[in-house]
Design a protein around this nucleic acid. Structure first.
Lengths: 192, 192
DNA sequence: AAAATTTGCTAACGAACGTTAGGTTGTTTA
DNA sequence: TAAACAACCTAACGTTCGTTAGCAAATTTT
């Protein structure tokens, strides 16, 4: 399924790859232009600023994460099942576009205000979704956890490393990775 | 216990804080000089280049991680106990200096060759230590894990997020954090 | 007391940076 | 067919960058 990208989308995609590889600050508009085969000044026919690209990538990914987790939320299920679903949704988004995910995870701090604050608020709202599940699991006696924030941070950080090693052609597909991670986080490494 | 730092160590420490907050590339020598209350050119009486600071921080932390894990390795113990010890050692280093840890974890990619390659080799050697423990645990039927690389990456990424939220004055001290993380990774969230 | 070292300064270098102005060309729309 | 638009160009702007040269003062070592 070949998709024709607009020039603006091409710029965004190429920039995403560079931002991921070298970081936002270490990527110059001339680097980006060179990668696209045009002059740096030409890029400004399509975007307003370097930061606009970063904003678009960060907030598009934020939306994708929200969409995925809301779609995956199984009401009237146990906390374990809900957590499993949330993990799967998160992993799906991460693996669908590892480059944009990396930018979303590590380059957002180069956003200027008010986007920086807005981004952090979104991220917090997203994490709250996980915290709510953990709280429910604790209340139901299903989970044994010292602190719900602690648990959520640990879970998400375990998931968020995937983008560094995931390859679509690797031996595990996204679904298997999600299943393995959920098992490991819910049941631990130890044989029972 | 007040320790008197040499000027070079002061520069390194101040730079570490800035590298952590804004990233290596987005931190200018003039920013750093300003933070130190001197002129940018004056810094070059103490160091050879901006990258030298990054190198020193990255490799010093690498050594700290190695020292800690070698010291903590309990021979003739079960894989669970060895993993617990390794996790504790890792968390100790992470929490002892969160700023340098953050630089170690995220800014090493701005090292130029051959330091970049050397760093990656060191990191791989460090991870191998964890992989060896996991392999042993699998062989002994102690751990149930789909893939040892997968397990190690997940464990380390769960640990490596600590630096973002750990505060020495917070409600958990380093030892408690290590214990909670080890429990969570070995036994999972689920009540058994 | 002399020598060496540490710590800092001013001035400036060449290069790289993000971005703007103004123009040309080819393609699509009215 | 004229108007509008998309895509890219060259030239250049003002700024910031890492770094060097050369010098001065204070402190420490011999």
């Amino acid at each position: 399924m070949e998709v024709t990208l607009s020039r603006k989308e091409q710029i965004e995609q190429t920039a995403t790859a560079l931002f991921r590889k070298r970081g936002f600050s270490a990527t110059s508009m001339r680097d980006l232009a060179n990668e696209l085969g045009i002059e740096a000044a030409s890029i400004y026919s399509h975007i307003k600023s370097k930061e606009e690209i970063l904003q678009r990538v960060c907030f598009r990914m934020a939306n994708e994460f929200f969409d995925a987790i809301e779609l995956a939320d199984v009401r009237d299920a146990s906390a374990s099942e809900r957590l499993q679903a949330a993990i799967t949704a998160h992993v799906q988004v991460l693996t669908r576009n590892t480059e944009a995910a990396a930018v979303f995870l590590y380059e957002w701090r180069h956003l200027s205000e008010p986007h920086h604050a807005e981004f952090l608020a979104l991220r917090n709202r997203y994490e709250e979704h996980f915290r709510e599940i953990i709280r429910e699991g604790i209340k139901a006696g299903e989970f044994i956890v010292p602190d719900e924030k602690f648990a959520v941070l640990t879970i998400l950080s375990a998931l968020n490393w995937i983008h560094t090693w995931y390859k679509p052609e690797g031996k595990m597909n996204a679904e298997e990775i999600a299943a393995n991670l959920a098992t490991m986080l819910l049941n631990g490494l130890k044989q029972t």
